[in-house]
Every structure is written in C-alpha cells, then in structure tokens.
Amino acid sequence: MNATNMLFLDILLVIALLSLAWATLTATDARRSVILFIAFGLVLTLAWARLLAPDVALAEAAIGAGLSGALLLAAVQHHPRRALSSERQNTGKLANEKQNDSNPADLKSSVAIRWTLTLFCIALAFVLIWALLQALSSETSDTLAQSVSANLANSGVSNPVTAVLLNFRAYDTLLELAVLLTAVLGIFALSEQRTGYLPAGPVFNGLVSWLVPALILMAGYLLWVGAHAPGGAFQAGATLAAAGVILRLAGKRNIGLPVSKSYLNIILVIGSGLFLLVGLTMLALGRPFLDYPPAMAGYLILLIETAAMISIAATLILAFLGGRPRNREDRSC
C-alpha cells in the first residue's frame, strides 16, 4: 500500500490518540476517565499494529484495552462516590498527629504552582522531543537487532520477540514474574476479595457460554503460536484471565480457581518457580544460569511459558477479585 494512504491512517491515529489521552486526563469524572482510557487502549492497539509490533498489539488488546479497563471499571463501580474523592479531602481526614511537613495537596490548590508545573511539563515535552529527534536522526548502530537475528537460530524459537523475552533477556522476564507475584501477595495482604456480582441474566449467560470457551481456546493458541509468530505467555495469560473475569462478572464465585489455599499458592508460584528451577538446573549442569542447551531450548521455553501463563492468568484474576479468595462455602452458584 502506498505512502499517502498510510499517511492518512497515521494522522487519524495520532489525532485520535492525542485527543483521547487529553480527554482521559482532563475528565472531571473518574468513570468517564476510565471509559476514555479503554477507548485509548483500543486505538493504541491499531497504532502498534500499524508500527509492525503485533506482539505488543496483542498484549495491548488483551491487557490495555481489556483487563486494565475491567479492573478500573470495577474500581469506579465499587465505590462510585468515594473513588472520586480527592486526596485533599482524604488528607483532611487524616486524624493522626500534626504533620510537620508541607502538604503537597495544599500546594496543588495554588494557581501559581499549577502553572509552574504545567510550564515545567511543556518545557519537558520540548526537551524530550529535541533529544528524541536528535537520537532518531543520528545513525545509531543497529548492532543489537543484528545480533538478535544472528543468534535466533540458537534460541529455540523463531519469533524474535519471544527469543528476547525468554532467552536473551530471560532474566528480565523472571524478575517480571516476581513483580506480578509481589503485586498479588501485596493485594492478599491488604484485603479479602470484594463483593461479587449479581447472577447473570439470559443475555449475559449467552455471552458467557460462547465467550469463555473461545477465550480459553484462544489462550492455548497464543501460547503455542508464540514460538514462531506473535503471541506468548503474557498474551495467553491475559486472555485466560479474561475468561475468569467474564465468569466472575456473570456472578460465578470461584471461577475455576481452586478453593484450597495450598493449591492456589502453587498456581501463583509455579510461573516464577519453574522458571527459576530451569535456571538453577542449568547451573547444576555446569552451564550459566538460564543458559538452555540449544537442542532443548524450544521445549524448555514452552514449559516455562505454560507455567508462566497459568501464574499470570491466576494473578490477573485475583487482581480483579481484589483480594484473597474467601473460604466460605459458595451458595450463589
């Protein structure tokens, strides 16, 4: 397709993104912000696709537009009134001892501070653009991308993004799974799951009956296809989590997660645990940490990704539940 047509698409996407970002950030009402943010995520998916980043587009469609949106919507709907309450009001409620420190919430009310910060942001935008244009116009060496493709054959997969994520920079991904685990443990430490949803009506049940199997099927497909085409554990995990979220929205309580605490713990830990175990096994075999033997690499990556998908999906579902599952017997379904 020729450049002019692409230019029209680019301009439309950029206008849509900028106006949606601005509207999301300046909305007076939190619920409106959330809806605009979801629309922003949808358009963003198109932009990633246009910039030839299908892996990122998949993740954005699953997480950015879908799950983050559901998380945020649940947050505004849970406390429609309080979610809007400003930090200023909250700080006023702070009944602990006198705070000696200057309170930034008070500072914010000052018009002068608002303008100073706005001018600072404008200046930052100019500096950023200046530096970025310098960087993009200078002939930066492409060595890293070249060495990725040079070593792709030894990585065990043929999708370069999966190779970077699960082989060349696998250590990042291991720590990222630890971040997910930290978040869910932090959520557990904070509270129990929020109240559930009303049992679904016939229309919703119809949606559930075809959407959930489709999501599970799609998750399996993404996991498998990730080795040689866009896809992988994260996209698959988010898709699987979406199935859980739908079930939860339809009023089901345990949405397929085990009730037993120890089984639940295993599911949460298995992603990072298996990853670490593979890494340490390599150490025991006299190889560097996470250095897979090339012949085994493909299988090991698939194994790690499967475990990671399970943990990611469970983590995201529990994040949507907003706390540790209750042990009480379920009477509603």
Binding site: T143, L144, S147, F168, A170, Y171, R287, F289, L290, D291
Partner: peptide
C-alpha cells in the same frame, strides 16, 4: 546470564 554477551 544465559551465557549471552552483555548487550544482547
């Protein structure tokens, strides 16, 4: 880590 040269 992973036996890859630093950078990659």
């Amino acid at each position: 880590i992973g036996g890859w040269t630093a950078g990659l």
